[in-house]
Design a protein around this nucleic acid. Structure first.
Lengths: 172, 172
DNA sequence: CGCATGTAGTTGCGAGTACAACAAGATGTG
DNA sequence: CACATCTTGTTGTACTCGCAACTACATGCG
């Protein structure tokens, strides 16, 4: 409406930030419609499941999972509840610290993800191949990582700050 | 967890997509805490208000606003209801098409935004100056625009597809 | 050991959102 | 003009999330 200057340096950084939100929201919906078809998992559930599937033993601590999924502990508890009701994950109490628990993929969950992830990856491949060169993609990833790390840092969520590689997943 | 290879070409595109979601979520929270201080507007409300403030006459059609804010018509109706209760916007029935209506900034709303936007812009300037060169910023904006347009297109929300410049705002 | 403090998850509650159904107006055709 | 159909926005309902309060366990200090 107002911004006729394409993104130059000083003008519309509001636009840049806005595009970040819009592209994330847009892709979220895009993936969402995908998932509802190939299974009965909501996009948020898929986001959690994919992180579990990519983790070492198919299980992660609740707190770790919450951080990765950008959810509060409360939100994650409910999310895992729902997926558990579907029989795709189970909880396992941590032996060394009995306060904590792991969310763990069940065989059914593993099976579902083994079937769903290739489609999802292919979908993403299709998008990125179409839109970006390899070099652009590398740059984009690096810049997004900077943004994420900065935000995490500023939000005080120390967590996995600068430069580390907590395998942000993609899920929905 | 699994991805030790920094973003190369073929490996972890899941990571790239994940970073997109995480950076958006992180910045959202970051801005959220900002807004709650400087006013009493929730971040979602701010997102809507800033788009109105940047529009031509401080008013936009409901449907247009919904598209810009990544909300469904339903969600926007409620959102505008809330802001209206705060006295920051009003509804104006469209004379040419009496089904439709405009959301319009009230003087109080205009005043609030005149005060709040500079802070918001300064905040964004601080982030982008710190993280990116001017050239990187241009590239980032261009790439995000591609992503957004692609997602809009695929989502069937025809709307303002490829290459046009609908002044995506930033709000939260 | 006994108690204060910190941490991991869970639950009550309020707020925000999407989906489906709907009301009201616009548009096209006979 | 009358009627079918589309479009714009609103409302009922159900779901998801975050915040604050809470339980259960762990840790540190006397």
């Amino acid at each position: 409406m107002v911004s006729n200057l394409e993104s130059n340096g000083a003008e519309d950084r509001l636009t840049t930030i806005g595009l970040l939100f819009e592209s994330a929201a847009g892709l979220r919906r895009l993936f969402h419609s995908q998932f509802d078809v190939s299974g009965n998992v909501a996009s948020q559930s898929f986001d959690i499941l994919i992180r579990l599937a990519r983790s070492d033993d198919g299980e992660l601590r609740m707190s770790e999972l919450a951080a990765q999924a950008s959810l509060t502990p409360s939100g994650l508890t409910r999310a895992v509840d729902r997926i558990q009701d579907q029989g795709l994950v189970s909880r396992r109490i941590c032996p060394e610290d009995r306060r904590g628990s792991f969310a763990r993929l069940t065989p059914a969950g593993r099976e579902l993800m083994d079937a769903a992830i290739p489609d999802h990856v292919a979908h993403i491949d299709g998008i990125l191949d179409q839109l970006f060169t390899t070099e652009e993609e590398v740059q984009l990833t690096a810049m997004l990582r900077k943004l994420r790390d900065y935000a995490l840092e500023q939000n005080g969520t120390a967590g996995c700050s600068t430069g580390d590689d907590t395998a942000p997943c993609p899920g929905d």
